[in-house]
Simulated scan of single mutants.
Amino acid sequence: MDLDINYKLWLEKDGSKVFGPGPAKMLELVDRMGSLKRAAETMDMSYSQAWNLLDSLEKRLGFELTEGKAGGSRGGGSRLTEKGRILLRKYRGLEKDFAGRVQELADDYFDGKRSEGDRC
């Protein structure tokens, strides 16, 4: 059967969502571009939305994800903290492993390996 499996993966703390695909993408863009402002623009967000999201994430996680210097005539910049880099790397690794296992399970269930008698 030609079915696609769809799911969303995020991290929670005390029952509240603290990290997922959107924040991961934002951190990757900050890392690549060296700027929260430019990352926000790329994601069609205002700088204030991006800053508020980052601030909220950091408060819920209990550690800083980025560090940087304020703007001005020479411009500012942002980069990931070591903890931010580790969180992003672990999340992307989990995401990749999870996708592989979900696909294996879907194949087992829908290609008949797990439920021979009731294949769709």
Rank of each mutant, 00 (worst) to 15 (best):
K37S: 07
R89S: 13
Y91N: 11
E67W: 04
E28I: 02
G75H: 06
T42P: 01
M1F: 12
L3W: 12
S48H: 02
D31V: 00
L88W: 01
I86L: 12
S73C: 02
E64A: 10
A50C: 03
P23T: 14
C120K: 13
G76C: 08
L105Q: 12
Q103T: 11
G112I: 04
P21V: 10
G68E: 08
M26T: 04
D118I: 08
K69E: 13
E82S: 05
Y47P: 00
M1C: 10
S46I: 05
A70V: 09
E58Q: 14
R79M: 03
K25P: 00
L61C: 10
N52C: 02
K69M: 05
V102N: 03
L53K: 02
R60Q: 12
K90A: 11
G77A: 10
R38Q: 11
Y47G: 00
M43W: 00
D2R: 14
V18R: 05
G117T: 09
D4Q: 15
M43N: 04
T81E: 11
G62E: 09
Q49A: 12
K13V: 11
S35L: 02
V18A: 08
R85F: 02
S16D: 10
D118L: 11
G112V: 06
E95G: 02
L105W: 12
K59C: 03
S16N: 09
G62A: 07
L65C: 03
A70Y: 07
P21S: 14
K59S: 15
D107P: 01
R101W: 13
Y47C: 00
G71T: 02
F110S: 07
E28F: 01
S73E: 15
V102F: 06
S115W: 15
Q49K: 08
L57T: 07
L11V: 13
S46G: 14
M33W: 01
S73H: 09
R79P: 00
A70G: 10
E95D: 13
S35K: 02
M26L: 14
A99N: 10
K17T: 14
L3P: 08
D107Y: 06
D14P: 02
